[in-house]
Design a protein around this nucleic acid. Structure first.
Lengths: 336, 336
DNA sequence: GTATGTTACGCAAGCGCTTTCATTCTTGCC
DNA sequence: GGCAAGAATGAAAGCGCTTGCGTAACATAC
């Protein structure tokens, strides 16, 4: 299947040894100026590209980082992936991506793929991963970063999004605008990041002397938001504000409310979370929380680099701030 | 960097040769039942995973397909990527993804990455690729599929989305609803797929005895649509319908129109293209055209598989149909 | 001129696997 | 029981590259 040139072809054409070509390509600085230039021009003239597989095998180092996400179609991930890849490349790594589609079996496959590729590290951005796999990765000394999941250990770092602060900012903002009955549309009860937000909401409400609720079930998607929106419109007494677990849910909630004849934000304010493009492009645009997804990908790559290079790796916790972004979906509570 | 087990460890533990282990793992059928089972259980017990790099090197076959997209954050791509990867895996390939961010230099990098990885084939889903690179790929006998771009040749197939039919369906639908002044918001003039839509619009309009225009410049993104929407609202005589080059543009157009005090669809109908989630989740939801992105990814993988396996490869043209999807952003033309 | 240090380069081993081909083991049959 | 044919297994070469080490070439100091 390989119809390309080998390093030997280049060496022969340049009249040097393969070692010299290799040294030039890897910039080890062991080659003289003249030879260096000669080799480089020969490489270019022939259109030679080194074979990564051979390179990785010989150097016993894949210089590859992996990223496992649960759903590339979830607007949360593309930006994370992009910044991860850009940062990985800057650091000299190749990056490979696996999508698990929220399926534990495919998460297994993804982790195995990472092991087969002998990656230096892998950013696990899904919660469907089993403890067994995590141990397997640790056993092979593959660096790992998690998202709001694991305690830090030798080869494992953790990226912690400050969900609580984000939720707190929303609740306080709504409170300041006169809202007292604030509903919450939840996501998947099994997801830790979801629960953090839900619990944060409950705590903040109580701290302000408000009774949490109603709390509706969602599914992190448009459909769940839609159903919740329809339900909230009929709820009595009707909440004056709805906090949705994420933007997609908020979009659904708004649609449901509009369909039920409620105006947003005049009758009911709605907030989202995550600052996806939906928040900006929605009509009305959505008040949401920016959790800096681009920083997330970059940090993950940095963390993996650090872990995999350290002689005595020491997992760290990275904190990613959350920031309230005001949109047109929220405003003062209606006078009663 | 490699702390894993090798095939030799497995062979030793099972008391067989490495050749036998390899034969078991590759299911060549040359190994007896008893030995087969023994090896398999040993592999499992030890937690062994073969090293892809060594495997690819030795077999001279990467069994890898690549996909190059221009922007993973563009909602057009994630679904394509996903179906591509799923299909590739079904066919026994590893899939690698590169994002070019619309940058010709990064497109170069991406193509080089594909060569370094010795991929069997690559799906090029961006138009920033140079002829030189295409030739380089052909020289290495790497199968290629393009999106509405290249003529088919030996190692190259083409996926053609039936944009014309999609545009035609929209124009006829609007015409039937009484619209006579139909504006168009274009994308990037250099993109062939954009021009096909624009020219299709002009032709359809003329065929119906209508004068095309006004034609506004967009950028395929929200911002361009927003500007166009604001401009159209002031246009005199005001169009009763706006066809946007894609959904994101349509979202912007709607926002612009609303901001300028036009109601959608009562005053002006708006249509999009591509059936991204934005179309569905927008308020109002957008009348758009489904170009079956999932089919696109799957077809690309199939096409590459076919090309790379054929003894005498023969590029083909694959046709992907377009389908009108009605939303709430369009309706009868206002009576004048 | 020899001894010493430095730089530039080549030799060759070997990364973990596949694959060819030779060898050994079964099995059936006369 | 002996033998050929076929099935099962192993030995070893080699994929394209990196890298440790050795050597040649040259400059410098005595």
């Amino acid at each position: 299947m390989n119809h390309g040139l080998t390093i030997r072809d280049v060496a022969k054409a340049a009249g040097v040894s393969t070692a010299t070509v290799s040294n030039v390509l890897n910039k080890t600085g062991k080659v003289g100026r003249r030879t260096h230039a000669l080799v480089l021009s020969t490489v270019k003239r022939l259109g030679y590209f080194p074979n990564v597989h051979a390179r990785h095998l010989a150097s016993r180092d894949s210089r590859t980082l992996g990223i496992i996400v649960s759903d590339i179609e979830n607007p949360f991930f593309p930006e994370v992936i992009k910044s991860f890849e850009i940062r990985a490349r800057q650091l000299g790594y190749d990056a490979i991506l696996s999508d698990t589609n929220y399926d534990p079996r495919r998460t297994r496959d993804a982790a195995e793929r990472m092991m087969e590729h002998n990656v230096r590290g892998v950013a696990v951005m899904t919660s469907e991963i089993s403890l067994r796999l995590i141990h397997e990765l640790a056993r092979r000394r593959i660096a790992v970063t998690f998202l709001d999941l694991a305690p830090v250990r030798g080869y494992m770092s953790n990226l912690r999004i400050d969900y609580f602060s984000g939720v707190e900012q929303i609740v306080k903002y709504l409170y300041k605008n006169g809202h007292r009955r604030i509903a919450f549309v939840a996501g998947r009860p099994k997801l830790k990041s979801n629960n953090v937000r839900l619990e944060g909401y409950e705590k903040c409400m109580r701290d302000l002397g408000l009774e949490p609720g109603p709390i509706l079930r969602g599914d992190l998607r448009f459909e769940g938001g839609l159903a919740a929106g329809l339900a909230i419109a009929k709820h009595s007494p009707r909440p004056t504000a709805v906090m949705a677990i994420n933007d997609l849910t908020a979009v659904g909630v708004i649609k449901g409310l509009l369909r039920a004849g409620c105006r947003v934000p005049q009758d009911i304010s709605v907030t989202g979370f995550d600052k996806t493009r939906f928040a900006e492009y929605s009509n009305p645009s959505i008040t949401t929380v920016d959790i800096h997804r681009d920083m997330l990908g970059k940090l993950a790559a940095d963390a993996l680099h650090e872990l995999s290079c350290a002689a005595d790796p020491h997992g760290r916790e990275y904190q990613v701030p959350a920031e309230l972004i005001l949109g047109d979906s929220s405003g003062p509570a209606p006078v009663e």
